[in-house]
Nucleic acid binder design. Sequence first.
RNA 1: UCCCCAGUAGCUCAGUUGGCAGAGCAAUUGGCUGUUAACCAAUGGGUCCGCGGUUCAAGUCCGUGCUGGGGAGCCA
Length: 459
Amino acid sequence: MERTKIKALLELGTSPGQVLVKGWVRTKRDSKDFSFLEINDGSCLANIQVIAGNDLANYEDVQRLTTGSAVGITGELVESPGKGQKWEIQAGSAEVISIAPEDYPLQKKRHSDEFLRSIAHLRPRTNKYGAAFRIRSEMAYAIHKFYRDKGFRYLTSPLITGSDCEGAGEMFRVTSLSPAQVAEDGKMDFGKDFFGQESNLTVSGQLSAEMFALSLGDVYTFGPTFRAENSNTSRHVAEFWMLEPEMAFCDLAGNMDHGEELVKTLVGHAMEHCEADMNLFGKFVDKSLPALLKTLMDEEFARLPYTDAIEILEKSGKKFEFPVAYGIDLQSEHERFLAEEYFKKPVFLINYPREIKPFYMRMNDDEKTVAAMDLLVPRIGELIGGSQREERLDRLEARMDEMNLPKDDYWWYLDSRRYGTAPHSGFGLGFERFLMMITGITNIRDVIPFPRTPGSIDF
RNA sequence: UCCCCAGUAGCUCAGUUGGCAGAGCAAUUGGCUGUUAACCAAUGGGUCCGCGGUUCAAGUCCGUGCUGGGGAGCCA
């Protein structure tokens, strides 16, 4: 008999008669002559209830089943007389696939996130983490679908890069030199290294994406990104996934339109296709989540020049730990005030002072600000960071000189401004931060399967 | 990297002015004819994070290290 997934079973309108399910025992409740088994196979949040009676040939084995054990159950799918579920299975036979011993760490009660993080290999077996990672999977699909529907091309940008000057943060060095060789040479002789020069894990696929946007039109990258920053916060990990669209012939306004449409589409997809899993988060993780999701879907995102933001902050009457003044980079508390208290919805902050932004952002006509945009979201902070790119060769080179960047290393990047340059824009969206936003999960380590953080690379 | 907090049974936690190590859940055993984190009863379970110190006496006070959490910076 062929196995049916529990998700498919629970969606049935009428019973097909005999079915076979395979999964893991979440809990067992015994009566004198029979047991209730709750079986979960990961296909959905819900369990299927199994009634295993003492008429089973191996009932003694069934009684020894513990939480976490793996079983195969064949039996008739019948309407449940009990409350709480539509269907249940009257077991005709039960295969004990494996018994989880008594030291199985997961119990049928609630565990703390901290404890579950220490058993990250087992936590997807819980309701909350199972739901989180089903949603993560579905959102990855939704991203590809969104872009395919819009005619974008998917670019797999390289993970190993040749320059250490992308400027987005500390990088992880990639080398094939052995420690013994380095000791012998008394230094890291990159000439002897695999690529013949220093190489690192990527901090962004943006520069690659720009080359392809100026070739294929609209492209996006979606993949892992690495930062060797010693960041110890609930919003940073050393390895995370970033979505980076890059669009030719697109200005800053178009960039914002695109970001807003993306967020609204993804949230809508989650609510439509992950309803049960999403409801868990609205109910047990963050009661204010449904309201936030509604805001994300229904409200137009605010758009605000940096200069106006400074003015709002200065006039707010709020006492900030870090004083507000034109020219400063906004602190977390400032961003939170704007998104959570002032606008109470996502807000694009645009046109930052040139001094606090990277070389590739397009200089505005005022010569003081650049066409940058950050999307600030309640509770999350910066979800998107992007800009219209500087497409004018002379302006770009001037900026690089200003910031003492080695233009020779960027010869290929500058080529794109020599040959057929055109206005273009793009941004990066932190995939994990997006997942935090739509689930209400407050620690980024809990939306990525096996988090990498300073001093921690178990699993 | 900086600031703050925490570490006691498998898990979640209590432990008073320094004076015998505790509870709930889980586990184990038994009971129960339909349960819903089932219920009832019994039983077992401890490097009080490590190291050093103060003291007649330290889970408790002091120093130090490690681990975890919250916040800040960096940013996605």
